[in-house]
């Protein structure tokens, strides 16, 4: 068996509403080895969640549609599977947890019922065995009094506990890949760390790979091996966590880094933000999608789409000025000198 678990090639996803066509994901490629974690980071609307949801083919259709690319999971192209074969993958080989645990559990069924359902769908266990397994899963995710909690409704759980339940559901069938779509965003800061630690612990015990979707680079540094930085439906930079952390190249990544709250930022230093807002994806964008907000942008950025090049080993970026010949100085990014762009 090869070490490659997932390979996404040129994934394209579009949403149609009336006569407007939004290109939410525009040719995303990445690969993931077994037991490896990849983080996808970007602002809201960057296409990171759509990318993740597309992997399970859970984009609501209509209005959404996967219009191109390949999703090779082990040796199958998920986009070519029948609906029935796809259902055998979902929750079994690839599971997903979502952003808001308060809305992602069904309010009218007990949490036990919702875990058992997942187990019964994919494993040949009788009801009693499935229940035992579910209780075991609840214990595994650190829910005290699991047996009693088994027959309680989601509204009787706190936010953090609900997310633990979601993790129990997702991991109930020992999936090879777990997609976590902003799993900590809706939680209290103190609970966030607990959930991340839990995911890390569990990953080691069941050998699963994780795709971590987040807008928080801090989460990525903590839990991932590789990073994909997305902007406006495109990957603008990718590489190992080490590389991106120590030597980020794309101006957008710099902007993201600068806008993170870190301990080193003193209260006197103003937290920087990226000026402007992401482009409207229903319009045709020529050139670099980030050009309009980029402090380094020049004529060429508006005219020509930069290609993804390997700037350092295993470190890719798409910027006209970050090539082997060219290098930008990150310090300049702080100076918001945009006078060189014609507006």
């Amino acid at each position: 068996m090869s070490d490659m678990l997932l390979k996404v090639e040129n994934l394209e996803v579009q949403f149609r509403s009336g006569s407007t066509l939004t290109k939410a994901v525009n040719g995303v490629s990445f690969s993931l080895n077994r037991k490896e974690n990849i983080g996808i980071v970007g602002e809201s609307g960057s296409g990171k969640s759509v990318t993740a949801t597309s992997l399970l083919r859970l984009i609501p259709d209509p209005p959404g549609k996967i219009t191109g690319g390949k999703i090779i999971f082990e040796d199958k192209d998920l986009l070519k599977l029948s609906d029935k074969a796809m259902r055998k993958i979902r929750g079994n080989e690839i599971s997903m947890i979502f952003q808001d645990p308060s809305t992602s559990l069904n309010p009218v069924y007990t949490v036990g019922n919702q875990i058992v359902e997942s187990i019964e769908t994919h494993q040949h266990l009788n009801r009693k065995e499935a229940k035992e397994k579910a209780v075991h899963m609840l214990e595994l995710v650190g829910i005290p009094e699991a047996r009693k909690r088994f027959s309680m409704y989601p509204h009787e759980f706190s936010g953090g506990m609900r997310q633990r339940v979601m993790i129990a559901i997702a991991l109930a069938c020992n999936p090879k890949l777990l997609i976590a779509d902003e799993p900590t965003t809706a939680l209290d800061v103190t609970v966030q760390a607990q959930i991340l630690n839990l995911m890390k612990d569990l990953q080691h015990s069941i050998d699963t790979s994780i795709i971590m979707i987040t807008h928080d680079l801090g989460v990525i540094w903590e839990s991932c091996d590789k990073v994909l930085v997305m902007y406006a439906g495109n990957v603008v930079e990718s590489g190992t966590v080490q590389e991106i952390h120590d030597n980020p190249l794309h101006p957008y990544t710099w902007g993201l880094l600068d806008s993170q709250i870190t301990e080193s930022v003193s209260s006197e230093e103003e937290l920087s933000t990226i000026p402007g807002s992401p482009p409207d994806l229903s319009l045709d964008i020529s050139g670099c999608p980030f050009a309009a907000r980029c402090p380094f942008a020049e004529e060429i950025c508006l005219e020509k789409t930069p290609e993804m090049i390997e700037a350092a080993e295993g470190h890719f970026t798409a910027c006209h000025f970050q090539t082997k010949e060219h290098r930008l100085d990150r310090k300049e990014a702080k100076v918001d000198d945009r006078s060189n762009i014609k507006s």
Partner: peptide, 9 residues
């Protein structure tokens, strides 16, 4: 969406 992600019919 959660229910669908479980692979049930």
């Amino acid at each position: 969406k959660t229910a669908r992600s479980k692979g049930i019919s």
